[in-house]
Nucleic acid binder design. Structure first.
Lengths: 136, 136, 136, 136
DNA sequence: GTGGTCTAGACCACC
DNA sequence: GTGGTCTAGACCACT
């Protein structure tokens, strides 16, 4: 499904959260899609099920997925995700933009990036950031 | 100059790096400005000089400041900072933008944030992110 | 594993970095190999663990090794190392070549050196540059 | 004549030596050319004449320049420079090549660089490595 | 006084 | 046991 980045010092569950989030945001996983069970993913990635469980639990808290007893985890409807707070996200966006500006990026450059993102909303793109696009 | 947040789980030297970076990007510290000496800042913040030294050393590696023996640390000329790779930064920007889009932010909204940033390039604003503006 | 040269004016951590780099480039340490723990190497060379830690940390920044908490340091997969910028390295190569040319070295001479290097890619050779070949 | 690199941690006299060497090797300064007097260069670069003097003295020891009392320093005839030891230089060349190989550079790539250097022997090029070509 | 290096020793989180 | 952070204090070279 995806690969964890060796050399990434963040806890495993954080990386899993991020990857799943990217799959949802990138349009690879859609509303209502079932995601692999805790055990499946744990086996698949040869890590502890508890780690996967924690990632899923936090994703559920953030509204990205929801669980149905004895059925599994599913991607939340988009309206639900939208409700989440955008504050921290906006800070991250602004900080990155400010630093890019300081480093000489033109406003038009950044705006174009934005337009490309909005234009190709459901483009899958390079989910892992490692130059490959992997299948589910 | 600024205060460290105990309760922030990140290492002290990371927090120092971030603060200094914000002071530079925010336009409070300018090209060639001398920043507090390792010992000064250590006393000021009642932490160990080694911790400050590490923060400064890593900021130097990132190109934001440079050191001159027996003189001190100085803010790098902006051209030097601009030379640094913008790749990682652009990824951060794009990721944040994509997630904001997914959460329902309009393209115009984000563009306006950008324009505000570029308009008020030298505005100092809330450097510490804690609601206060402190003097040097 | 190797010996540090007292009398070498460079800092100890720089010497450690160089030695490890040579072991990796020279093919003695391979992808995924675990290198001695910070404490082991410190005891082995009768220097302070902090000094070893700094060397390892900087090698990690340069992409040559990566750390896993509670496990140790490991040689990075080669693809990771290849990703690093070759610009600075190319400048060093070119500068040396230019000076050699100016001092009368023939192009064929240098090309032959190159071919020997590429031919004996995994030859271990004199890793320490001190005329001895040491075992791990 | 040239600019010293702020943020370069080597002693000033080392940097001056390097720059002069590049000017000679790059073909900008030729056999018998007079180089600026110690005092001239010191004033020009607003540094201590002793620093310049040391650089010149070491360049003279290395055979790159020679002094004539009351006349100044002059670029040595090329035959004289060729006599200098190529050992250390060859090590630098080999080390850089080995690391480039490890990082994925093809042998042909490096050979081409060599051929370009030998083809354009007297090309001046980017002496300071900062993208500019400066006049004497 | 400055930065830079190194030592010694402590504590934490992780596994 | 491992890496990671932090403190305390020393010494050096430089200006």
């Amino acid at each position: 499904m995806f690969q964890l980045d060796i050399g990434d010092h963040r806890p495993l569950y954080e990386q899993i959260k991020e990857k799943i989030k990217f799959l949802i945001i990138g349009g690879i996983l859609h509303d209502g899609d079932r995601i692999p069970s805790v055990r499946e993913l744990a086996v698949d990635m040869t890590i502890n099920p508890n780690t996967v469980a924690r990632a899923y639990r936090e994703l559920e808290n953030d509204g990205f997925i929801y669980s149905q007893k004895a059925k599994g985890y599913f991607v939340s409807p988009r309206e639900r995700i939208e409700k989440g707070s955008r504050d921290e996200l906006t800070v991250r966006f602004t900080d990155a933009a400010r630093e890019l500006m300081y480093r000489g990026a033109a406003c038009e450059e950044l705006c174009e990036i934005l337009h490309n993102i909005y234009k190709g909303g459901t483009d899958h793109g390079d989910v892992n950031g490692d130059g490959r696009i992997e299948e589910l």
